[in-house]
Nucleic acid binder design. Structure first.
Length: 296
DNA sequence: GTGTTCGGACCCTCAACATC
DNA sequence: ATGTTGAGGGTCCGAACACA
């Protein structure tokens, strides 16, 4: 509608692929916030707004036929994560979309009350320009959600915007955001630093996505506030490097196990840093029986 | 406990419409 | 030309169910 996503079809820099296993032709798997419903963003406790507004979920532009049939989350890559997971990568093709019908007459528009819809301004909380409030955010709430409001964020992170168009590079704006969890077993990632064409999607150990979408309750123990930069110093544009934001990794027992339910959750158990509902990983199991015809 | 199905809420796209 | 509106049509969450 009038809303737009603050997070785009972001293609974050990604950890190096491990080509041998699941991704014969690795394409980018936007496993980051693009595949992460915004209501799942990791807020540390105590910082989470009392009544955290439900945030929008992201959708891919075009789901593959398999995901479409199964009504499951797809992603932009082909093969998509889900198809890869179920070993049907070769069947992972874009579904056909109907042509939008034209010539549909519409009645006159209602005027918005109060008229002027000039919402988003690039004025930050200090009254300084530079803090870009994504249109959707600004337009949908009188008080912008936390990630965009505070002059200084409790945590620094990177929030890919949706302001770029296909063909353009993603636009990253330093945002007031909470840092993601680190991987449980940090390992040197060869050539890491966000490589193009990489698939953060299914990193067999030791590779893990930098962004690990976790529900808040599972994402708290090690998140620490990023230090406020010294006076006069610019707010650092955070990289996706855990070292910017985290305390040392906790022992595995400190991880809470996500609620187990459904097949995807099973995968999670093997990859504790993964919220499988948002971000499945290949586990070599057979594909589910894809039901046919949803009749919608 | 794990895997599948699917209703329906949610989201995106984009043509029609409105305003400058 | 540019901005806004809002409906069409797609995505996928999450509850319910089935199965091992």
């Amino acid at each position: 509608m009038t809303d737009h996503n603050p997070d785009g079809d972001d293609h974050q820099g990604s950890p190096p692929q491990s080509a041998d296993v699941v991704q014969p032709q690795m394409t980018m798997h936007p496993i980051t916030y693009s595949s992460m419903p915004m209501h799942m963003y990791p807020f540390p406790p105590g910082v989470l707004p009392a009544a955290a507004p439900r945030t929008k979920r992201r959708q891919v532009k075009n789901a593959c036929t398999n995901c479409q049939k199964a009504c499951k989350k797809c992603d932009d890559a082909r093969p998509c994560l889900r198809c890869v997971k179920y070993g049907i990568a070769e069947e992972c093709i874009d579904s056909q979309r109907k042509e939008r019908q034209k010539g549909v007459k519409r009645g006159p528009y209602k005027k918005r009350d109060g008229k002027s819809n000039s919402v988003d301004e690039t004025i930050d909380a200090n009254g300084q320009p530079g803090m870009v409030i994504p249109p959707a955010v600004a337009a949908t709430s009188a008080t912008p959600p936390i990630p965009y409001v505070a002059p200084y964020a409790p945590f620094y992170g990177q929030y890919p915007t949706h302001l770029h168009k296909p063909g353009e590079g993603p636009v990253y704006v330093p945002q007031l955001v909470y840092a993601p969890l680190p991987p449980p077993h940090p390992q040197p990632m060869p050539g890491h630093g966000g490589q193009e064409g990489e698939a953060p999607g299914y990193p067999p150990p030791p590779y893990y996505p930098i962004f690990t979408p976790y529900p808040p309750q599972y994402a708290t123990p090690y998140m620490v506030p990023a230090p406020r930069p010294p006076e006069g110093q610019p707010i650092p544009v955070p990289g996706m490097h855990p070292g910017h934001h985290y305390q040392p990794y906790p022992p595995p027992h400190m991880y809470q196990k996500p609620p187990s339910r459904g097949p995807d959750m099973h995968v999670a158990a093997q990859h504790p840093m993964v919220d499988p509902r948002r971000d499945m990983r290949y586990d070599g199991r057979m594909p589910e029986a894809l039901h046919h015809g949803h009749g919608k």
